[in-house]
């Protein structure tokens, strides 16, 4: 039984890690339906010439939506400094790609208007609710510190218990009183 544990664990690790790679299907996102969709950009699609052809939005509900863009897609995107860039994809495709990458890296939400399956407009979302997340922030710090303190408390208490047990056992082994053993170190 014991001899089987290690090969089993090796097999699990060797199968699990490539399994993760295989599971990364690029078709996980659903096609966008006509209308407005808001979210943060998670994946950027480019063609062989590194021209922007689309991107994937993660909506507030966690749904991944595939957005296709064309030359007529107009952009109205703000950078971190608040400068707004307005242009069509066909007019400046390289700048469009840079701006989309910037939006993605900053988790800056965008609103996309889809017409006939292709984005007609991609704009920075004017009002997001990402600023109202103090509850989540509080939860993160509470969990982290509680985790550390509980673990350190358990380790400390166990150290104390073992130190006492060592004293008692030394007393038994060396034939002296536990308190004498502790004084003797």
């Amino acid at each position: 039984m014991r001899k089987r544990i290690i090969p089993l664990l090796i097999a699990i690790v060797l199968l699990a890690i490539p399994g993760v790679a295989l599971a990364q299907s690029p078709d996980a996102a659903s096609k966008a339906s006509d209308g407005n969709t808001s979210g943060v950009i998670t994946v950027i699609r480019v063609d062989q010439d590194t021209n922007l052809v689309g991107f994937v939005l993660s909506t507030k509900d966690g749904e991944l939506v595939e957005i296709a863009v064309g030359d007529a897609t107009s952009f109205g995107l703000e950078n971190a400094a608040g400068d707004r860039w307005v242009a069509e994809l066909g007019g400046d495709p390289s700048e469009a790609l840079l701006r989309i990458r910037d939006q993605r890296e900053r988790f800056s939400p965008v609103t996309v208007t889809v017409v006939d399956g292709v984005a007609s407009a991609v704009v920075s979302r004017e009002q997001g609710d990402l600023e109202q997340n103090l509850g989540f922030l509080f939860a993160i710090y509470l969990v982290t510190w509680a985790g550390f303190f509980v673990y350190i408390f358990i380790v400390s208490r166990r150290q104390h218990d073992l130190a006492r047990e060592i004293q008692v056992l030394k007393g038994q082994v060396f034939g002296v009183d536990a308190s004498e053993a502790s004084q003797a170190g």
Binding site: V20, A23, Q24, T59, D61, E63, F107
Partner: peptide
């Protein structure tokens, strides 16, 4: 464990989900 928990709590408001199956 704390890495997973803090990541999930951050992901919920930003991504909209607690967890994604990405690599």
């Amino acid at each position: 464990g704390l890495m997973l928990i803090t990541g999930m709590v951050w992901a919920k408001p930003v991504w909209g989900v607690w967890w994604t199956g990405e690599a």
